[in-house]
């Protein structure tokens, strides 16, 4: 009898979070089918890899954002932190630091910004919205001040490796002396996104800190009374978000082979949208990395498909805005049941 009950409850559970994820996947497939009709070039290996590349940055931000949103917070600073991390790396490389330690320094910068966010929120008891809004302006201001608002270029070929390199690239020399790309290869950023997403999902579901993140978002006072160190958990989540913003900054700047202090404006909103479309609740306690990745790809495909179809950037904003409101509305209906 208990088996019957157990299987019934398992089926019931499928009705909640899994249904949302399923509908998100369905949306993604629907978008891909629709864009394949509107633009013949959309459904091709090349364009698929382009989408992967374009989504990598938003995807990395969305992983950190998901953790923060699950704690019941929000991180508005990731776009600016991304730029500041890039600037620090650019300046370090210009000062003679090799590329890899330079990029490490950039990621550490991002993590430091995130840790400061977490400390402001927990120690000064300032709401996440205000604290990270402040950090958004501070980091952007620092990035612009440090560079005089000018891009840093000529950082060397190796700086561009992370963003432009790929695995399994097959190039054939033609008789006329021009190379012909047979398979463009799987871009490094896409592989990096996959690795980080798997790591994030593992931490969230299999590690103590992940369980604590969920519990803090679910009921903060209950978590505290149960002996969860709420301060440490929140600082951890914001630090992770900051570090991933730094990593996303490395990918983006490397792809451009130039550090742009005004890159990444409004990226936080794409990351939040990805998490929310993927089923994360802004009330906290609910969310998953896999869902957020689906959300990131919905936004990536939407942007790419609309571009290919020649839709203006302004119309794109309108459409993505509607999609976000729609996703939150569906989430609310789901929670009401």
């Amino acid at each position: 009898m208990s088996d019957v009950q157990a299987s019934r409850s398992r089926r019931l559970r499928l009705g909640g979070a899994s249904l949302h994820k399923l509908s998100a996947v369905a949306t993604l497939v629907l978008l891909i089918v629709a864009f394949s009709f509107t633009s013949p070039a959309f459904f091709s290996v090349n364009n698929g890899l382009t989408v992967l590349l374009q989504t990598a940055v938003i995807g990395l931000l969305a992983i950190g954002m998901t953790m923060v949103i699950i704690t019941g917070g929000i991180d508005l600073s990731v776009g600016s932190v991304l730029a500041l991390s890039g600037v620090v790396t650019g300046l370090a490389i210009k000062a003679g630091m090799p590329v890899i330690p330079g990029m490490g320094l950039g990621i550490v910068t991002g993590a430091a910004c995130g840790a400061i966010n977490g400390l402001i929120i927990t120690k000064m008891r300032i709401t996440p919205f205000v604290a990270t809004l402040g950090m958004m302006m501070i980091a952007r201001g620092l990035a612009l001040q440090l560079t005089g608002a000018a891009p840093i270029s000529r950082l060397g070929d190796s700086f561009g490796q992370l963003g432009n390199g790929s695995f399994f690239r097959v190039v054939e020399m033609q008789a006329n002396g021009f190379p012909k790309v047979i398979f463009p290869g799987i871009p490094y950023p896409a592989v990096l996104l996959l690795v980080v997403a798997l790591l994030g999902a593992y931490i969230l579901s299999r590690r103590q800190i992940g369980r604590h993140i969920l519990s803090v978002g679910s009921h903060e006072e209950a978590a505290r009374l149960s002996g969860v160190n709420v301060t440490r958990t929140k600082v951890w989540a914001y630090t992770a978000s900051g570090a991933l913003a730094g990593l996303a900054g490395m990918v983006l700047m490397s792809r451009l082979v130039t550090v742009q202090p005004n890159e990444g404006v409004m990226y936080e909103l794409d990351a939040i949208a990805a998490a929310v479309i993927g089923g994360a609740s802004l009330m906290g306690g609910v969310g998953s990395i896999s869902g957020s990745m689906i959300g990131a790809f919905i936004i990536g495909v939407l942007r790419n498909g609309l571009n290919m179809a020649g839709t203006s950037a302004f119309i794109q904003q309108i459409i993505i805005g509607i999609v976000v409101i729609g996703a939150v509305y569906i989430d609310q209906i789901r929670n009401r049941n």
Partner: peptide
Amino acid sequence: QTLALANHL
């Protein structure tokens, strides 16, 4: 009295 349970877990 409030039980202090995390509802989503």
